[in-house]
Design a protein around this nucleic acid. Sequence first.
DNA 1: GCATTATACTTGCATATGAAAATACTTTAC
DNA 2: GTAAAGTATTTTCATATGCAAGTATAATGC
Lengths: 150, 150
Amino acid sequence: MTTNYSTPILRTLRASAFIDERITGALSAVHGVSLRDTMLMLYVKNAPGSKLSRIELAKRLCVSPSTVTRTTNPLEKIGLIGREADNRDARLSYVVLTPTGAKLLKNTEKTLEQLSGDFLTPKLTEKELLQLAQLLGKLTSDFPGNNTQA
Amino acid sequence: MTTNYSTPILRTLRASAFIDERITGALSAVHGVSLRDTMLMLYVKNAPGSKLSRIELAKRLCVSPSTVTRTTNPLEKIGLIGREADNRDARLSYVVLTPTGAKLLKNTEKTLEQLSGDFLTPKLTEKELLQLAQLLGKLTSDFPGNNTQA
DNA sequence: GCATTATACTTGCATATGAAAATACTTTAC
DNA sequence: GTAAAGTATTTTCATATGCAAGTATAATGC
């Protein structure tokens, strides 16, 4: 029998939909930010110099540039992120974390870790978790702006 | 060092977003149906008796019942799925595949398998693919309406 | 049996999203 | 140096989605 390629793909999509459904609600209820907001801020934090252009963010989040604009606007308005110009290229406007944003992100990460553990530990052993993280790491290793942490 | 639970979660979400972005376009371009349409029809096909109520579909797809209604309506209109009543419960209306729908699904599955292979094979070995499928299987094993295939 | 509660959808409304156009700036070609 | 092409971002528009309300039917309590 030959390998079935669709199965891991379909399972990934399903797991993602399930996780998204559960975690988004909890996260925004506790911290007032969505899962997307959180991932955006995580990418900014982990980027070299802790700043990212909107285009780079779009690639990392796998969403359109318009979505980045519409995600960052309210975060900027409530003071969690800021805007930084580039000296050489006036088209660029980097997203950076404000002190408030960095502080909130720290707390949000804790909640996310808690929620993730609650979801994962009943199903997988420590060893399996490590395996899964490694395999998904390989799968996403060539994604734009990949960093080991996420 | 303690286990990091967020990483596999974030990687799953990212892989899903990436896959979704790539596969949805190709799939609808070739067969005229979206990835969601395809997953819906797959769940129907694999369900006992090859029929599913809309509520059961919502659970399997991890979406709201309204989304199921709005996904099935056009599929019904173009003759890919049908509607079947329940003898004992007049509230239920099962989704079933029409012969046309079943035929289209067979072709769509082939394309999906091809696209999945193109995405996976450059990154993981056969052995790793099997491992990944197994781990994701454990992760999604207690999802409503789980079946081994997806 | 009748009223209350629960379930299976469907629809109205507000929000979220991508594609493409619009805008502003930069790079390349010559 | 100027025109053409390319890039970063925002905005417009059409579509997609969840929540909550609406409708119809079934199950439960008494």
